[in-house]
Amino acid sequence: MAEVHGKKTVIKVATKDISPYCKTSSYEGSADVHDITGYGKDAKVKAGGLIDGKFTCGGTYDNTASTGPRAALKPLLGTTVAVIRMPEGTGTGKPQDAFSAVLSKYVETAPVDDMVSWSAEFEISDVVTTTTQA
């Protein structure tokens, strides 16, 4: 088993590489589950349905005017954007997830005793395409 360090993760939103500003990211896949139990059964019978998902990321705020998280993400709030996620970094044979997602939330947090931070939440729209980088 080979472990992979999270520091190699690459995240691109609407073609902008926001990886240098991220400290954390999370992909969550889910699916609808339907109860199709009929009369006479002693236990529930279930069937899978539509696939869904969420993606979140966040990190330390950086005021880099054209590429920082505020400049790259805040204007996209409420729009559908292309997201590319490379959990093992870039390189031949490494996995890559590509999907469209609506940026549903962008948050900036400014505590009095710490650095300003940011976070973003995306609702995935349609299928996630998983490929191997060439």
Rank of each mutant, 00 (worst) to 15 (best):
G38M: 10
G53P: 02
L73H: 01
P69A: 03
S125P: 04
K54L: 06
D97F: 13
S19H: 06
T67S: 03
A134M: 10
Y21R: 01
D52Y: 10
P75G: 06
K74T: 00
G40V: 03
S117I: 01
E28S: 14
S125N: 14
C57M: 14
R85H: 10
R85E: 08
V81P: 06
K7V: 14
T24W: 05
S125I: 14
S30Q: 07
G40F: 08
F99N: 01
G91R: 04
G49E: 02
V13A: 02
E28C: 11
T80H: 05
M1Y: 13
E88H: 15
V13T: 01
I11W: 04
G58V: 03
Q96A: 11
Y61T: 00
V128F: 07
C22P: 01
S117D: 00
M1F: 12
I84K: 09
K94M: 06
T67Y: 07
A98D: 06
S117L: 01
K16I: 00
A98P: 00
V102Q: 11
G78L: 05
V45F: 04
T67K: 01
R70D: 04
N63D: 15
Q96R: 09
L73V: 01
M86I: 11
A65T: 12
G91H: 05
T131P: 03
V107N: 00
T109Y: 07
V128H: 02
T64W: 09
L77G: 10
D126I: 07
T79V: 08
E88P: 10
T80R: 02
S119G: 06
C57L: 13
S119L: 03
S30H: 08
A72S: 08
K23Q: 07
C57D: 09
G89M: 09
A101K: 08
H5D: 15
V33P: 13
K41D: 09
I36H: 01
Y61C: 03
D114E: 05
T24P: 00
G49R: 02
P111F: 08
V33S: 14
T56E: 13
T109H: 09
G53L: 09
V4K: 15
T132F: 06
P95M: 08
P75C: 04
V127S: 13
L76R: 11
W118D: 04
G89D: 03
Y27N: 00
A43G: 04
K44A: 09
V112E: 10
D62K: 11
K7P: 03
E28L: 15
L77Q: 13
T92K: 13
A72M: 06
K12E: 15
T60R: 11
K44D: 13
P69Y: 04
S26L: 06
Y21V: 01
T79R: 12
S25E: 05
G91W: 03
K74L: 02
A98Y: 01
Y106V: 03
K44W: 13
F122Y: 00
G68H: 02
S104F: 01
T64Y: 08
V127Q: 15
P20I: 08
K54R: 07
L73S: 06
D114V: 03
D42A: 07
S25L: 02
S19T: 04
S119M: 00
L73G: 02
K7Q: 13
S26Q: 07
P69F: 00
